[in-house]
Each structure stands twice: as C-alpha cells, then as structure tokens.
Design a protein around this nucleic acid. Sequence first.
DNA 1: ACCTAACAGTTGCATCTACATATAATGGAG
DNA 2: CTCCATTATATGTAGATGCAACTGTTAGGT
Lengths: 158, 158
Amino acid sequence: MERMKGLPVLPCACASLRRASRAITQAYDRRLREAGLNTAQFTLLQVMQLAGEMTQGNLGKLLALDTTTLSRTLRPLESEGWLECSTGGDRRERHWRITSAGRKVLERSTPAWVRAQKELGARIGEKRLKAMIEELAVFADAPRPRPAVRRAQRGARS
Amino acid sequence: MERMKGLPVLPCACASLRRASRAITQAYDRRLREAGLNTAQFTLLQVMQLAGEMTQGNLGKLLALDTTTLSRTLRPLESEGWLECSTGGDRRERHWRITSAGRKVLERSTPAWVRAQKELGARIGEKRLKAMIEELAVFADAPRPRPAVRRAQRGARS
DNA sequence: ACCTAACAGTTGCATCTACATATAATGGAG
DNA sequence: CTCCATTATATGTAGATGCAACTGTTAGGT
C-alpha cells in the first residue's frame, strides 16, 4: 500500500546505505550545482557555520570523515577564502572556522539546498524524512572506530 | 532514553546519509578486507549472484550507480574472472553475470560480511536494522533522475 | 532505404574518500 | 630535563564516483 514498485531491498545494510547515499547525493548535487557547490562542500560550510570553530580532527569525528580526507577537501575552501584556520595552543592542531565570505556563499546556496530537501520531503513525507535523519545519526555513531587493536599495532613489543 | 550522547543530528538529509554511509562503509570494509575485498566489490558480486544476468544499465539503476562508474568498477572484477559479460541481441548492451570463480569468492567473503552486519545489528538492534534497510530502499528510489529537462538539453534547435 | 533522435556504453577529467606512511608537536616516565 | 609513545596533520597512492563529451547501435518517421 506504500508503493507499488521501486528498487528492491538489498540484503546488505551497507549497500543499502551507499545506494541511498548515491541517489540522494545526485539529487542534492543537481540543485547545489546551480549555486556552484557540491554536497560535500556545502556540508562543510553548513556544519562550520553551525558548529563554530573546530579542530580538523573533531570535524572529522563529527562527519565520520578521515582527517586525511579533510586535509584535502578543506584546502580548496580555504583557497576560496570561505574557511580559514589557525593553530591553537597545541601547534599540531588546525582550528577551522567559517569566514564572512563563506557565510555569504552559504547564504547564497542555501535556497538550492532547501529546494533539494523540500523535494525529498515531498516524496517521502516530512515526518518520515525527519525520522530518517535522526535514525541516521544513530547509525553514524554506531560503529566506533575500534577502540582496541589500534595502539598495539606497531608498538615495539620486542 | 535511547542514547545519552553521540553524534549530533545534522540538518541536511543528504549529509546525514553520507556521514552514515561513510561510517558504516568503514566498518564493513575493515571486515571485508580480511577477505581481500572492499564493500563496493562485495556488493557487486552479491547483487549479481542474487539478480542473475543483467545489463550494465539495469545494474546501474538497481544500485543507483552511474553507468560510467560501472564501466570502471566492473572491469577489475572481469579481469579477476569473477564476472563476465557478453552482448545480447542489442549489440550496445553488455550483459553481465557472475562466474563460478566469482561465486567462490563471494562464498569465501560472505562470513566477513555476516560478521560486519551482525556487529551492526548488535549495536542498533536487529529489528531496527531491518527497518532501516527497508526504509533506505524507499529513499534510494525517491529521487527519480528527473524524466524531463534532459532531452532538450543539446538538441539542435537552430 | 534514409535520417535523425534516443539509447548503451566508454573515455577524459575532476572530486571524494581512505589506508599506509611520514612529520611535527605534546606529554608522561625516569 | 630527556626519551619515547601518543597525537594531529600531511603526503603518496589507489579506488569510487559522476558529469561532459564521444562512439557505436537501434528504432521511428518519412
């Protein structure tokens, strides 16, 4: 009674997630493209706007993104002058924040994002969309990056 | 009452999906790595096993993957002898199917996949995981690739 | 039969993503 | 204070992903 047909349910949770992620990303990218951004860039700006200053590592944890990935995806945004960074007391850390230019780009592209999200909400149902968003946060949090195993990896045992 | 803390809910459905997708993919990849595969490859084998022979285009629709992506991700699997393809009556099409070698690799790696999925189910709850998988199929289907707009794109109007 | 639009897949190019490894900075044990 | 494990980030390398543009094939209208 929900849908006559559609894509088959995949047995693998990960494949299901990746498929949906690709499908939705394509839809959002098409909208955001009008604003000259892709989803990854828009997300970084939006999150930095909401979260304020953050270290690169914490941003990675927040987005479940490898720090090494951020090293490269943040650089273009810095070059554009949308984000900036400075070192804190700990000189290893990079503290990132959005600039006023970045806020301007974010504002300018937000209507495209709203449109994408509204279109999705219209198809799925706003309530259902909201439920999904909240559930996804739980899933993103579920697989902790293995607290064990890591340290004894190459620690000189000899 | 659900969880004391965890990752914050993101406002963007797409960002939520992408974050969860990255997090879960990393977990599955760690398990599948023991078997010498990554999630994308395992998914292709698993789907081809379940779906039987398919054209590249239909496989793309099934997985919400661009055909051009499949052109490249399928090639290594063909080189390994895990998938094979032939042209049908329509000589444009490539009909793909899993080989017996592919089935063997799939069988060999399935325990690692089961372990990853079990671990996720243990954290989230089996019921909740199942519900999520089903809901994700609906989401993957939601954003049809805009039937209109496309054809009149570069059609010689002059 | 012919012509043209639509279609299936490939290739060029760009970005995202992550693991292994390297470098620099910190902090705790002695 | 010195040494070494840990931490934060960068770089090398490699795969996934998609769009634009291209080639070859099919089908429909004339």
